[in-house]
Simulated assay, not measured.
Amino acid sequence: MQVWHDLAEAAKALTAGVGQGGHSSCVVTIGNFDGVHRGHRAVLGRVVGLARADGRAAVAVTFDPHPAQVHRPDDAPELLTGLDDRLDLMAQTGLDAVLVLRYTLDLAGLTPEEFVTRYLVEALAARTVVVGHDVRFGKGNSGSLATMVELGGAHGFEVVAVDDIGVCRPQTAGGSPRWSSSAARALLAEGDVAGAADVLGRAHRVRGLVVHGDARGRLLGFPTANLGAIQGMVPADGVYAGWLRRPGLAAAGPDHADHADRVLPAAVSVGTNPTFDGVDRRVEAYVLDRDDLDLYDEEVVVEFVERLRPTLRFDSVDDLVVQMRADVDRARDLLG
C-alpha cells in the first residue's frame, strides 16, 4: 500500500499508475479510522471491492492529527492507535493507497465544495466516493450525504452510502452500536481487552521503543521490555497475557537469522509498580521463558489478549515473585 502525505505525492503516483493495474482514477473513502475496527474494515472492504470491479485504485483519505485534537485539545478522546499502526491495519484491508492529510484549522475552514474539488476531484480523480449515511465534512461540518451527492453530480463521481457499523452489528445492553472507536475505548479503560478485541476484530495493540528501566524485573528472574514513546491507548492497570511483535524482524524477511522471534508470547504489566512505591505508569512485557533477548532501542508492538488480574500491592518481594510465576503460568496456558 502506498502512503501519500501531500497532493503532489498523490498526483505523481496517479500519473504513474497505482496498484497492479496501473490505475489513474480512484474509488475513495474519507475518515479518521481510529482503531480500524470491524465497522471501518467493512467500509474499506467495500471500497476495495468496488475498485477491483471497476478497474480503479482503492484509496482512503485520513487525517493526522485527529480533528478533535485540533478543535478541542483539552478533552479530545485518547486515540486507540498511532498513525503507524492505523496505516498498517488499513493496508491489511487491501487498499492501494492512503492519503494522510495534515489536519489544520485552514483545512477545517474549507467549504464542502472546496474540499471535494481540491482533494477528491483534482487530486484523486475520484469516480466513486464511499461514505457513511451520517457523513459530515467541510467548514463547520456543513457538508452532508446530500451535499456529497449533489457535488458528485456536478463533478462526475458516484456516491455510495454505507452503514459503517454493519447490518448485523452487535448491540450493547442499551442498544447502542458496539462496533465503534468510543466503545473500544470504554472497554480498554476497564481493562476488558477481550471485549475490545470483539469490537476491533483483533487484539488491541500499542507500539513503542524499548527503553532502559530499573532492571528490577531481571533481578527477580523476569526481564522485561519497557516501552517508551508509546503510540496507542494503554488499557487499565493490570497484568495481561499478550504478544510481543518485532516489526523490524518481520520486514527483514524469512531468511533473517532471528525471523522465528518476530512474534513472542508475553506477560504484560501495566501500572506503577506499587510494591516498590512506583510513580510512573509503565508498560512492561516479559517474553515467556526467555532471558536471552536484547530488545533495547528496538521498536516493538505489544498486543493485549486477556487481562489476568488487576495491579496489586504485595507485602513482600517474595509474595510478588510467587504471583508473577502464577501470572506467567496462566499466560502460557492462555496463549498456548
Rank of each mutant, 00 (worst) to 15 (best):
L145W: 05
G152I: 03
I165S: 05
E150W: 06
C168F: 15
A146Y: 12
P170H: 06
F137I: 13
F157W: 03
A146E: 12
V162H: 02
G140N: 07
G156A: 11
T147Y: 10
V160C: 03
H155A: 02
G152Y: 00
F157K: 04
T147P: 12
E158A: 01
V160F: 09
I165Q: 12
P170G: 04
G156N: 08
G156R: 09
G156Q: 10
E158W: 00
D163K: 01
V162F: 00
V167N: 14
G166H: 10
G153D: 07
G143N: 04
G143R: 08
V160H: 05
T147K: 07
I165W: 09
V167G: 14
G166W: 04
I165L: 07
C168A: 15
A161R: 07
G143V: 12
R169N: 00
L145R: 04
M148G: 07
H155M: 10
G153C: 11
H155Y: 11
D163F: 06
L145H: 08
V159L: 02
D163P: 04
G138I: 06
V167M: 15
M148Q: 04
K139N: 15
V149Y: 02
C168E: 13
L145V: 01
V160R: 03
D164M: 03
M148V: 11
M148P: 01
A154N: 14
V149G: 03
H155Q: 02
D164T: 14
G156D: 05
R169C: 01
L151C: 01
K139V: 11
V167A: 12
A154W: 14
G153S: 10
G143Q: 05
D163W: 06
H155N: 12
G138C: 10
E150S: 12
L145D: 09
G143K: 08
D163G: 05
K139R: 15
K139S: 13
V159S: 05
F157V: 05
S144D: 10
G156M: 11
Q171M: 06
G156Y: 08
V167F: 13
C168K: 14
G143P: 04
E150F: 09
G166L: 02
V159I: 14
H155E: 07
E150A: 12
D164Y: 05
L145N: 00
C168M: 08
V167Y: 13
S142R: 11
F137T: 01
V167R: 13
V160K: 03
F137R: 09
P170N: 09
N141L: 12
A154E: 12
R169Q: 07
L145E: 14
A146S: 06
V162N: 01
V149K: 03
C168I: 14
G152V: 06
H155F: 08
C168S: 14
P170R: 08
I165T: 08
S144Q: 10
E150D: 15
F157A: 03
I165M: 07
G143L: 05
R136V: 04
A154M: 15
